[in-house]
Design a protein around this nucleic acid. Sequence first.
DNA 1: GCCAACGTTGGC
DNA 2: GCCAACGTTGGC
Length: 152
Amino acid sequence: MNYWLVKSEPEEFSIDDLYRRPKRTEHWDGVRNYQARNFMRDGMKKGDRVFFYHSNCETPGIVGIAEVVREAYPDHTAFDPDDPHYDPKSDPDDPRWLMVDVKYVRKLKRTIPLSELKDNPALEDMALVRKGNRLSVMPVTEDQWQTILDME
DNA sequence: GCCAACGTTGGC
DNA sequence: GCCAACGTTGGC
């Protein structure tokens, strides 16, 4: 099994929003970064576990766990001119952008704030804690996963 | 192919 | 709200 971390702005889509979705499942649309897309396309497999991270909010940090329930398929929001993530260069016959479906697993007992993640030497290789990193989908090693669960 | 300009991300 | 860091765009 592989481990991942995805970011979301809670005012746009929070862990509670995921919980309230039918079947507690939502498609992870709107990723418009090639590196992040490639992780979804090439790496994310059904059953993989995913840390849910809240960004751009009062206390940025890891708030919960989800799981991949459907592997990469075309992100239809790229084809919709009325969608904020519309990309005219994504051809429906050769989709440029992909998404996966993720399902709520559980909330963490507490938010693990970014500040604590940055302070833990065991996590210094995570893209998340490196300065200026904007990647919204990233891999997490098994050791990092366990370290974070221990922090919970 | 270079690189300046621009738009976005996201912590603070 | 500010702004540093980064990715993308497009002129040349």
